[in-house]
Design a protein around this nucleic acid. Structure first.
Lengths: 148, 148
DNA sequence: CTTGATCCTCTAGCCACTTGAAGATGCATC
DNA sequence: GATGCATCTTCAAGTGGCTAGAGGATCAAG
């Protein structure tokens, strides 16, 4: 397998070139060698490393956790206790978000199915938002930032 | 009912004072009158408005949507079509996140329950992250940012 | 009159990127 | 060899929705 340009690596791992440069900047990806004209040249190993990072990010691991996981993957002789602990934490975080989102869905679908057509003064949606009756308990804020 | 200081308003709506100042800055809360010594003084109506905003944020509505919803609440004679559409969009967004998180949970709990104890070289967690076999489809990245 | 809580403004930081400016290089075509 | 366009380079700033801190003024209680 030949080496790759940043654009090739990007499309192989389905990320964008600036993301790879960003990962290099924060030290998740090692700085690759360069051509005479300063372009990045990636060896085939970089594909697997970038895929590992992407997979971990898809699972919601924070960058600092990924740093630890990559470090373990780079040093197979160490104990994998940290990896297990991080995975458990991430599972707990995901389960917490799931239960929060499930209650948001309940309230939103109540709002939506009460759907109305007239003036905003009688709007069920706005009424629901003003109403503290069916309000959620003391959950934190929901988060509207899953992209793509 | 008497007017409130920013701290009173904050504790009535269970948000922090800087959040109220931030909402004022971005135009969700109107700038209130001030005392001679420049402190903010809120009329009782402000409590309901802030509660509306907080409730909508808890449900995950983005600030721009809340701006529209507040605008409708302020003008009851307009049609509430926008409010219904926003609520439907938000419900769809929440449902999408739910299904993404459900598949994350599946993969994470497979990783966690395969739990291992030895060197990282044989770690199931790291193996799973390197493995493209059970990999998720083309979901976007998960998001690790639900606070509180 | 002192103490401590609360308030003010302003700036910077968080996370994980994304976007844009301004310019160099590479490759295909005429 | 000139043209044109895609891709690459660096660096800076923007995104969302706040949160935290500096440095100072004011308030209420004892």
């Amino acid at each position: 397998m030949p080496p790759h340009s940043i654009g090739e690596l990007a499309s192989l791992a389905d990320v964008k070139p600036p993301t790879i440069r960003f990962y290099e900047q924060i030290g998740l990806m090692p700085a690759p060698r360069r051509t005479a004209s300063d372009r990045r040249v990636y060896e085939p190993e970089a594909v697997a490393r970038l895929a590992f990072i992407k997979h971990a990010r898809q699972l919601g691991f924070p960058v600092e956790a990924i740093r630890t996981l990559l470090d373990l993957a780079d040093h197979p002789e160490r104990s994998c206790g940290d990896a297990n602990r991080l995975a458990q934490q991430q599972l707990a975080a995901v389960e917490q978000k799931l239960s929060l989102l499930a209650s948001l869905r309940t309230e939103l679908s109540r709002m939506v199915s009460a759907g109305c057509d007239g003036p905003a003064g009688e709007c069920r949606v706005i009424e629901s938002l003003s109403d503290h009756g069916h309000c959620l308990g003391d959950h934190g804020p929901a988060d509207s930032t899953i992209r793509s």
